[in-house]
């Protein structure tokens, strides 16, 4: 018998600290597979965020730098400008990107930095105990919205890909749902395209992953996947939102 699937070289052979069924693990794996497929392991640098993915440097088998509190796009900008031949990936959660670091992401996108953003949207702050994020759904109960998010008090969920798509420097923005195999494979294609765009030096690219946080949603991993399909996708439509390089 021949091996037809095994752990990608870009993923270290260690157990992650993520909870059972956490979407971060799937996003790590598809990113690692793509880095292997494109043969860019020696020149890839991920900038890890604050949040549950803060320890990503323990898991990826390529260079990882840590920049807390939404500043990964700023660090990524510096790295890409100094070392343009490297592949620079800003890996961010929704609290990190859309709350704490909203200024950094908007300006990096507007400048059209030739970086790729991997945006993991699980609708709340996972690491700190499940508080509301800008992406929390209307009516969703979190540690800081115990009665459910109310528009008049907390505004609407921010659609990051649509928001950033208005900037000319953003050449690719796409959203996928980490649910069943079909959607995961679609998401992988999107991320591969985003990285190919960076390799061709064409502009800023972002892929948003609707991703499970079973722990703070207080659901089983299976129910969490259903929750993405039934509750998150209607608010955050999946598909390619902007693609100027068809």
């Amino acid at each position: 018998m021949e091996i037809i699937y095994e752990r990608p070289e870009s993923l270290k052979d260690v157990r992650t600290h993520y909870c059972a069924g956490c979407g971060h693990g799937v996003v790590h794996r598809i990113l690692a597979e793509i880095v292997d497929e494109l043969g860019i392991r020696e020149k890839t640098v991920v900038i890890a965020p604050v949040g549950c993915a803060v320890l990503a440097y323990d898991y990826f088998n390529f260079d990882v730098c840590e920049a807390p509190h939404g500043r990964t796009p700023a660090v990524a900008t510096g790295m890409k400008r100094v070392r343009p031949s490297n592949v620079i990936i800003s890996y961010q959660g929704d609290g990190d990107l859309a709350a704490i670091g909203m200024a950094e992401i908007i300006h990096a996108a507007n400048r059209g930095e030739r970086i790729t953003v991997v945006f993991v949207n699980n609708g709340l702050y996972g690491m700190t105990g499940g508080q509301m994020a800008p992406t929390t759904l209307i009516g969703q109960r979190t540690a800081t919205t115990p009665m459910g998010r109310d528009f008049r008090e907390c505004g609407q969920p921010i659609k990051v890909c649509e928001l950033l798509s208005q900037f000319e420097g953003v050449v690719y923005a796409a959203r996928c749902a980490i649910t069943g195999p079909g959607n995961i494979i679609k998401g992988k294609k999107m991320l591969k395209k985003a990285l190919s765009i960076q390799l061709a030096d064409l502009g800023f690219s972002i892929v948003e992953f609707l991703s499970a946080c079973p722990t703070h949603w207080k659901l089983t991993p299976r129910e969490a996947v259903q929750y993405i399909e039934e509750k998150m996708v209607p608010c955050f439509p999946t598909g390619v939102i902007k693609d100027t390089i068809k």
């Binding site: 021949e2 091996i3 095994e6 993520y18 069924g21 799937v26």
Partner: peptide, 17 residues
């Protein structure tokens, strides 16, 4: 078919054929 490996968040699955 490999579908189990595609959804695994912990990359715990290897497949032989």
């Amino acid at each position: 078919c490999g579908l189990c490996a595609v959804v695994c968040p912990d990359c715990a699955i290897s497949i032989y054929k």
